[in-house]
């Protein structure tokens, strides 16, 4: 498929380089001005209520700490199953995102709920390991019951122009997502945009990941600053929009890290709505990688329902 799209019989670094560097550039000032313009949208009343519930349903509720324990993961799953004990109409988040070794714990705690288990793999967050290790990491998480795998690209290879290596690694990890029954875990490809530095590089990395078979493209690990930003997500939303026009295949987008408030989430949803289009406004095609965001969304949800702020003590802290 990649070879057909590029019109070549064999992929190589020069072939990929020509294609990626032939993409239109991103003007930094213009892209940031567009984000600032969309940031002035005023989301009120019914639109706000809709957007809050939508945002909650798009969260990958995340814990990715060295100090994570099965107990902490179970507690996070409990929160995912009942986000707001005072209001059973509250939607559930899309997934719980953990390290691979805790995927089985999460799977068990979530039971037969529709909440997915997402696991980071491929020597997250640095990606600095040999391919066999990365693939074993991936298989281990899939066997543990992960529905979704969040892999990292080799940024060193990407920035050095070894595009074929990045491509091949994504293809190999995608293959490792396959289960014996013929189904496969969804693959999210983390570009770690904070290390790519320019919007041109973000656009090229997005196209490379989509070409290699990513189901989702994701901004960040959350371990590097800056993590997700609005302009980076804008560039990625433009990429998936244009990719669908080019190939007919729809790819999801996941900004992760640094999104903490309802106001932030609203800005992202406005951008999804007006850049990629309403087709992306579902948990199937857009996710927030976040831990603290859920609490603020719940506070704002209670405020809309009751007309008064309840205060942080009325939102559970897990």
């Amino acid at each position: 498929m990649a070879r057909d799209l590029l019109g070549v019989s064999r992929l190589s670094d020069p072939v990929l380089r020509r294609w990626l560097h032939g993409l239109p550039g991103v003007d930094q000032v213009g892209a940031e001005a567009r984000v600032a313009g969309l940031g002035t949208r005023s989301i009120k009343t019914t639109a706000k209520a809709f957007a809050i519930d939508l945002a909650i349903s798009m969260i990958d509720l995340t814990t990715l700490e060295g100090a994570d324990t099965p107990g902490k993961v179970r507690s996070l799953c409990a929160k995912a199953l009942v986000p707001d004990p005072t209001d059973p109409t509250t939607p559930r988040p899309a997934a719980v995102c953990v390290y691979g070794d805790l995927a089985a714990t999460a799977r068990k705690a979530l039971g037969d709920s529709l909440i997915h288990v997402a696991a980071v793999a491929t020597a997250f967050p640095s990606g600095r390991a040999s391919m066999p290790v990365k693939l074993a990491d991936t298989r281990d998480a899939v066997e543990g019951g992960a529905d979704e795998i969040d892999m990292v690209i080799d940024r060193g290879a990407f920035l050095a122009g070894r595009y074929l290596q990045v491509f091949d690694e994504i293809v190999a990890v995608k293959a490792a997502c396959a289960r014996p029954d013929g189904t496969a875990a969804h693959l999210k490809v983390i570009l770690e945009t904070g290390e790519l530095a320019t919007y041109d590089a973000v656009r090229r990395a997005s196209y490379l990941a989509m070409l290699a078979g990513a189901d989702f493209i994701k901004t960040s690990t959350g371990k590097i600053a800056p993590a997700a930003t609005l302009p980076v997500t804008l560039v990625m939303l433009e990429a998936v929009r244009d990719w669908r026009e080019l190939t007919g295949t729809q790819i999801g987008v996941k900004p992760a890290g640094g999104i903490r408030t309802t106001k932030d989430a609203m800005k992202y949803l406005v951008m999804v709505n007006e850049i990629a289009g309403p087709d992306w406004l579902t948990p199937d095609w857009f996710r927030f990688g976040a831990s603290g965001l859920l609490g603020d969304l719940l506070l704002q949800r209670q405020k809309l329902a009751t007309g008064a702020y309840s205060g942080p003590d009325y939102v559970t802290i897990d």
């Binding site: 949208r41 009343t45 209520a49 809709f50 949803l269």
Partner: peptide, 9 residues
């Protein structure tokens, strides 16, 4: 509401 229609502001 099933679409993200911006309410009057």
């Amino acid at each position: 509401m099933t679409r993200f229609d911006y309410a009057p502001a």
